[in-house]
Design a protein around this nucleic acid. Structure first.
Length: 269
DNA sequence: CTGGTAACCTGGCCGC
DNA sequence: TGCGGCCAGGTTACCA
């Protein structure tokens, strides 16, 4: 669930509840969630520090401290942040708990334990190590860049959009929405897309992410003609009413409208 | 380079 | 009520 728009809302949440506050204590409640250093050192290095700024890249959230280190968070599929005032109000499945000197707690919650937390020297170094592409909502990721990265590839457009090494931040859910809005079948080979189709995908990529970010951080739900509102077994296309179909592409379940998103033509496309 | 599969982990849901 | 089985999600490892 946490793809770039959700992580962007976690960033806002983190800014609201953690930035500028001094850390009184850090408690690791399940050490399996900590990567790159022992849980005890994670706790020790964090306490006494202060969070000063945040940074988002794809599905990763970074928080700079006033020390040498950055906190890095990845949310897997079920992770999120939760702030609360009283210790006894801590949420179920909290894995890391940060207590602030002025009171209040921020917990990293993750029921299914996919995802991780660590302390690193440099976000850029981590981005390089992981081989991440440009963050999808970054203004530097423009159409020229998109075209350069995606246009020649042989693979299907859906797994390409989900490939964090090409552009970071898009997962199974939003790739379905982007392709639905662009009226492109998810099985289409990237290198068979013409200029107009590439432009459409890029346009909707930006638009869908921004719409979701606005929704998560502000008010309101997704627009009526969004696939995500109907993304479930047996539902009807919000545009034409055709029954939605599913397909396994790249190991993930894709939802699409067989009428709005025509199957690519040609043999074994 | 490409793509297919499975594992990691665990709660939720379906069917019996 | 309980239980097995499957699914979800992002990432990574492994194999063709």
């Amino acid at each position: 669930m946490p793809e770039l728009p959700e992580v962007a809302s976690f960033e806002k949440y983190f800014e609201k509840y953690a930035i500028g506050r001094k850390i009184a204590s850090a408690q690791v409640k399940d050490s399996r969630i900590i990567r790159g250093l022992p849980a005890g050192r994670f706790e020790g290095e964090l306490s006494g520090r202060r969070f000063v700024s945040t940074r988002l890249h794809g599905k990763y959230l970074f928080a700079a401290t006033d020390g040498e280190r950055w906190l890095v968070m990845h949310f897997g599929m079920t992770g999120y942040l939760q702030y609360f005032e009283k210790p006894e109000d801590n949420p179920k499945y909290d894995r890391v708990l940060i207590g602030f000197q002025q009171g209040g707690y921020l917990s990293y919650v993750n029921p299914r334990m996919l995802g991780w937390i660590g302390l690193i020297e440099s976000p850029d170094e981590l981005i390089r190590q992981k081989g991440l592409g440009p963050s999808a909502q970054d203004s530097r990721f423009d159409y020229r860049e998109f075209r350069k990265i995606f246009s020649g590839r042989k693979e299907r457009i859906k797994p390409a959009l989900m490939n964090q090494g090409l552009a970071a931040g898009i997962g199974n859910i939003y790739s379905d929405e982007i392709l639905f809005q662009a009226r492109i079948h998810p099985m289409t080979r990237a290198n068979s897309l013409n200029e107009k189709e590439l432009k459409s995908i890029f346009h909707h990529l930006k638009k869908v992410l921004q719409t979701a970010i606005d929704r998560n951080t502000g008010t309101g739900s997704l627009p009526e003609q969004y696939l995500l509102r109907e993304r479930r077994k047996g539902a009807a296309c919000p545009v034409c009413g055709t029954r939605l179909e599913t397909a396994k592409i790249g190991g993930r379940t894709s939802y699409f409208c067989p009428n709005c998103q025509k199957e690519p033509t040609g043999p074994k496309a």
